[in-house]
């Protein structure tokens, strides 16, 4: 099959809403969105705390978190694999090769991004707000709700960056999910598999969806910063 006819078949997969195709796209979105949500719930307060707290080893922790932003997805996958494998500490849960394992692995990938970007945003805000909030008696962790709310537009951009990383990665979900058809097969793992099998239409169709998704994320990030400038100054 040549590339142009593969391309046509890919478009027909998308526009005919092929059930197998939709199942893969749906699972990818479900796993990644859950991972980003979990990372936000954990990472936003932790990042804000890291911004306002002063304790020994803080600088080292910041360097560590910044470094983990570049954690290779296959290494994250390996760590989660070891933790969830039958002989690992969480082996009894039976999560390996399930969407749950994929969510855990992607959360691990997104979390450092959310913590590091939140820390940077909140630290800038804190240096601007510190005297006023201290004057109102909002010091330490009590300042965090105000800071998170006022940094909401910049923080949304950080979450979108995390979403972009998780939706594009293949290594982690491949290792802990196992690429099981109809169960743990995502857009990225399908592309890797179908391309090597020579099934170009499915790979190309999923690739197109991923590119559109990336564009949509960037549009949303741009929109968030514009809205922020307009309504928050």
């Amino acid at each position: 099959m040549d590339v142009s006819s593969a391309f046509g078949a890919a478009l027909s997969l998308i526009f005919n809403l092929d059930p197998q195709f939709l199942q893969i796209v749906g699972l990818s979105l479900r796993v990644t969105l859950t991972a980003v949500l979990l990372a936000a719930l954990i990472g936003l307060p932790l990042g804000a705390l890291l911004a306002v707290a002063r304790f020994p080893g803080r600088s080292a922790l910041i360097v560590l978190v910044n470094g983990l932003m570049g954690l290779p997805p296959v290494v994250a996958g390996l760590i989660v694999f070891l933790a969830l494998s039958r002989s690992g500490p969480f082996g009894a849960m039976g999560w390996l090769f399930s969407p749950t394992a994929m969510v855990i692995a992607q959360t691990l990938l997104v979390l450092p991004i959310v913590i590091a970007l939140t820390r940077g945003t909140i630290e800038d805000l804190w240096s601007e707000y510190r005297e006023h909030l201290t004057s109102l008696g909002l010091t330490g962790w009590r300042a965090i709700p105000t800071l998170l709310w006022d940094g909401r537009f910049a923080l949304a951009t950080g979450l979108l960056a995390g979403f972009g990383r998780a939706s594009a990665e293949v290594g982690a979900v491949l290792i802990v999910g196992g690429n099981i058809a109809g169960y743990t097969r995502t857009m990225t793992t399908s592309i890797a598999l179908e391309t090597s099998k020579g099934d170009l239409p499915l790979a190309l169709g999923l690739g197109l969806v991923l590119i559109i998704l990336t564009l949509a994320i960037n549009a949303a990030a741009y929109g968030a910063s514009r809205i922020g400038a307009r309504f928050a100054g």
Binding site: E131, H132, A232, G233
Partner: peptide
């Protein structure tokens, strides 16, 4: 605290 302060450069929340 029953005393308040206004700063030279006003701090405005977003």
């Amino acid at each position: 605290r029953r005393h308040a302060m206004v700063f030279q450069r006003p701090v405005m929340l977003r």
